[in-house]
Design a protein around this nucleic acid. Sequence first.
DNA 1: GTAGTTGCAAAGTGTTTGCAGGCAG
DNA 2: CTGCCTGCAAACACTTTGCAACTAC
Lengths: 148, 148
Amino acid sequence: MQSQKKSAIQPERDIGKQLRAVGITPTQQRVQIAEILFARPQHLSADQILASVNSLGTTASKATIYNTLGLFARRGLIREVIVDPVKVFYDSNTSTHHHFFNLDSGELTDIDADKVVVTNLPELPGDTQLEGIDIIFRVRSSHPHEEN
Amino acid sequence: MQSQKKSAIQPERDIGKQLRAVGITPTQQRVQIAEILFARPQHLSADQILASVNSLGTTASKATIYNTLGLFARRGLIREVIVDPVKVFYDSNTSTHHHFFNLDSGELTDIDADKVVVTNLPELPGDTQLEGIDIIFRVRSSHPHEEN
DNA sequence: GTAGTTGCAAAGTGTTTGCAGGCAG
DNA sequence: CTGCCTGCAAACACTTTGCAACTAC
């Protein structure tokens, strides 16, 4: 009984544990940022996270946001999604999956891994190891569209 | 005989035609940029193109490089490759294919379309149309690697 | 107490823009 | 001649960095 816990009751504690589990000291700011990200699977930009953190009382600086996101990503807690030339998205869903990227709205949507089957994997260039596969379906909202 | 031409003899003329074919006025700079890009299938950044153009005698400004690359991409002459958060690559190979991206060297390599078979295409989000599919294999050079 | 973290502001990058002068047709 | 291009420099947006003050443990 003492090893059981109802999740979502004290998220802070759990998040602290989660961070420690990957060797990250759980500071106020990091826990705050993690709470926002891990609340549900989602795609957020550094800016959005900064805004969320600061609207929740505690503050974090831009520098800390970027440091923390980079750290989380290196530790595998989140995934960087590079689809927009202008900014990076951070995805709190780390299970294998892919994305729709709406070029008009800038919106990012998940695609279940089993929806896209990749066969015939190519052989890697000499002396490299695979870090990850990104599959992005670029879509546009269907209004008639001028090309210029 | 008059409608035959040995390619690569007067590339400028051909490129002029190619540009006109997609409704682009072939100015000096645009032809110059197109020549570099179309010389062979390759992946170049705006910076690299600027350097190439300027080392070839004719000059083009940064603004013109960006304008031209954007224009070429919209007209389908080249393809923008978004893999590096820091800069866009322009790919003069417009046939369907995918990429290896070496995170250590920043190098981009082609993968033939038939090497990667995607089955089970997901259905698009309501009211959108597919613009393109990007598949990127992120790899690292195989030296032991510290994570921090 | 001490290593590690944070915040601020300044610097850095790639890219975009405004506008005067220039070139293509 | 006229509208479209080009170049310059300034503006931009995102991200990174340097360094002093602060916090976790």
